[in-house]
Each structure stands twice: as structure tokens, then as C-alpha cells.
């Protein structure tokens, strides 16, 4: 059984499992509405270069080359997506080779994660919402050590 009590200005409600399980009565916020933070791919299909999921890829010393390659890949209409982006990827690779300590295996993993993000975002444009929270967790994990402290 739920109950409620008041301590000065503070109200304390203990909600029983039984009552919790009942659908909310009255107006409550729409849980499924998008948060104001876009993911990697914005609603209009453009790339959000400020997405924390990109880490430093788009802003680092090879940011420009990365953006050219990734844009090409993202907007590629080729049957085998991205196969028309050889030059751009070559340019990116060449730049990255100049910064071995920055673009090592670890950032290779980053690239995988970004590709995953991109794929997920693409599938989401049709499905949407369900995965949104997962999307955010990627963002937040990257941007702050917030999620990381939860062990």
C-alpha cells in the first residue's frame, strides 16, 4: 500500500509496487519525445559534427580529412556504400599515418563505434525512439565520465 506524509515543507510518498504498475493518471510528460540533443545523424539526415560520439575525430589534426571521408561515405549513393570514396579515405589514411600516437588501434576501435553509430542512426530514421536512450548513453559516456562512474 502506498502512503504519503509531510515533513515540514517536504512531502514524502512511498509508492507501492502495485500502484506503480498502474498506468499513470492525469497528464504526465511524454517519455518518447526526443531529447533536445541530436545524435550523430540529425533529423534532416545531415551529420552532426558536434556529436560527442565522434570523440576528437572531427576536430583533431585529421579532422578535415575525416570529415571529407565520412561525408562521402554517409551520402554515398553507390550500390556498395562508400566504394566511391577511395580518394577521401586515402587522404584520411595518409593524414593519420602522420600521427601514429593519435590514430592507433584505439582510434581504429573508435572508427568502428562511429560506423556502428551511423548504421544505428540510419536504421533509426525508420524505427526511432526505441534505441534513443542507447544513443544517449553513448553520447554521455563519451562526453563525461558520468556513465562510467556507475559500476
Amino acid at each position: 500500500m502506498s502512503y504519503c506524509r509531510q515533513e515540514g515543507k517536504d512531502q514524502i510518498v512511498f509508492l507501492s509496487k502495485e500502484d506503480y504498475d498502474k498506468p499513470p493518471i492525469g497528464p504526465v510528460p511524454d517519455e518518447n519525445e526526443d531529447d533536445d540533443e541530436p545524435g550523430l545523424i540529425m533529423e534532416n539526415g545531415d551529420i552532426n559534427w558536434n556529436c560527442p560520439c565522434l570523440g576528437g575525430m572531427a576536430t583533431g589534426p585529421c579532422g578535415n580529412e575525416f570529415r571529407e571521408a565520412f561525408s562521402c561515405f554517409h551520402y554515398s549513393q553507390d550500390e556498395q556504400k562508400g566504394s566511391d570514396c577511395y580518394e577521401q579515405f586515402k587522404g584520411m589514411q595518409e593524414c593519420m599515418q602522420k600521427f601514429p600516437s593519435l590514430y592507433d588501434n584505439e582510434s581504429g576501435a573508435d572508427m568502428d563505434a562511429i560506423a556502428e553509430e551511423e548504421a544505428k542512426a540510419r536504421s533509426q530514421t525508420t524505427v526511432d525512439d526505441g534505441e534513443k536512450s542507447g544513443d544517449n548513453s553513448v553520447n554521455e559516456a563519451d562526453d563525461k565520465s558520468d556513465a562510467e562512474t556507475k559500476s
Binding site: S2, Y3, C4, R5, Q6, Q11, S16, I25
Partner: peptide, 21 residues
């Protein structure tokens, strides 16, 4: 013994909570 269900108390919670101190 002193509990009142949220179900029957919905309105009171917002307006005039039953104070069980």
C-alpha cells in the same frame, strides 16, 4: 496500519496530503 493507498488518495497527494507522522 497507518497507510492509505495512493489509489484512493490520488487527489490528496497533490492537494492535501494525509499527514502520517
Amino acid at each position: 496500519a497507518q497507510q492509505a493507498g495512493v489509489k484512493g488518495q490520488k487527489e490528496e497527494i497533490a492537494k492535501e496530503p494525509e499527514v502520517v507522522e
